[in-house]
């Protein structure tokens, strides 16, 4: 019964949400689009930070590589931007394999510092016009809009449906992933790496896989961002971008999909409501991060404990979760 009710509630919420562009003005639709992109990014980072427990503070690097792949191939070779989605994911994924392979064994806080370093190196490389294709500090402009069967995605309203459809697909896929063998293995190694390894979980392999899947998704988010802005520059991929994604994951509730969506709404959306305090936004984040760690380490909407009911025939109450 409750299952059916959940489905109805979720469908209703989706219908209400999908009709929002008809009631909101362009500015607010655009805010919702930003929230959508950050939701996708947070969901991808959640796999690395929340599920595998790997502290990645350089996620903007993968996002940047996706965005630049899209921009370079689209403006230079005229390949339709939508067709580049897999390519963007692929380049970000390959980059993730290359950099994560040697550093994945590092302990929590060391990994954190190294990913910051990698993020910075990527940003400096973009500014220095590496290989002569990134356009230096000015970036790349004139990126085409996505078009599907002759319909061009142009206005913020169009992008609303494009971005949130992608976010919806991401939610569904990541929900499946979370409850798969892969998701359980990640949670196991997050909770106790030694025990996981002892039980036959190939920890290095799973950690790398989580990193790569997260990076692939961030790369595709980069493609969407590039097509939405039509101009990208290294400024959009600073360390603070990584911190923002990280803050969404931690404050939203690491490991929980609803937490990511709520986190994106709070951290990206809420400051728009208080425009006059825009400068103090980061100040509040910082304080919130400290307070959250002291009073509610698991985040606002923490992940539910996995529950497995006992077989029906046993007749006992399935109280052990």
């Amino acid at each position: 019964m409750t299952n059916q009710r959940t489905i109805i509630t979720i469908s209703l919420a989706n219908v209400v949400f999908a009709s929002l562009p008809f009631f909101l003005n362009t500015y607010w639709v655009d805010v919702l689009n930003s929230i959508g992109i950050y939701s996708i990014l947070a969901l991808s980072l959640n796999l690395i930070v929340g599920h595998a427990g790997l502290f990645n503070l350089g996620h903007a690097a993968f996002y940047a590589i996706g965005a630049y792949t899209a921009a370079i191939l689209n403006t230079g070779y005229g390949i339709p931007i939508l067709a580049l989605l897999p390519a963007c994911g692929f380049t970000a994924g390959v980059f993730a394999v290359l950099i994560a392979r040697p550093i994945i064994h590092l302990r929590g806080d060391y990994l954190c510092i190294v990913t910051i370093g990698v993020g910075e190196i990527v940003r400096i490389a973009l500014i220095n016009d590496v290989f002569g294709v990134t356009g230096g500090a000015n970036g790349i402009f004139g990126i085409a809009r996505p078009s599907l069967f002759g319909f061009s995605v142009r206005s913020p309203q169009h992008f609303f449906y494009y971005i949130w459809t992608f976010a919806g697909i991401t939610v569904c896929l990541f929900h499946l992933l979370e409850n798969s063998r892969f998701g359980r293995a990640l949670n196991y190694l997050r909770e106790d790496e030694v025990a996981a390894e002892g039980s036959g979980v190939d920890t290095a392999h799973y950690k790398l896989a989580a990193f790569v899947v997260g990076a692939v998704w961030a790369g595709m988010a980069g493609n969407i961002y590039a097509s939405k802005m039509t101009i990208i520059s290294p400024e959009s991929f600073t360390f603070w971008e990584s911190v923002l994604m990280f803050a969404i994951v931690i404050l939203g509730g690491s490991g929980s999909i609803p937490g990511m969506l709520l986190g994106a709404f709070l951290i990206v959306g809420l400051p728009e409501l208080f425009r006059e305090f825009a400068n103090a936004r980061m100040l509040v984040f910082g304080a919130a991060m400290i307070a959250m760690m002291i009073f509610r380490t698991q985040g606002i909407l923490p992940a539910k404990q996995r529950r497995y009911s006992l077989p029906e025939s046993s007749g006992e109450e399935s109280g052990t979760g």
Binding site: L57, G108, V243, N279, M282, F285, G286, M289, I290, M293
Partner: peptide, 16 residues
Amino acid sequence: LSAVVSALGASIFLQN
């Protein structure tokens, strides 16, 4: 790692 997140928060707070 909770303390690391708190440190990051403190850094953001002080900088701003």
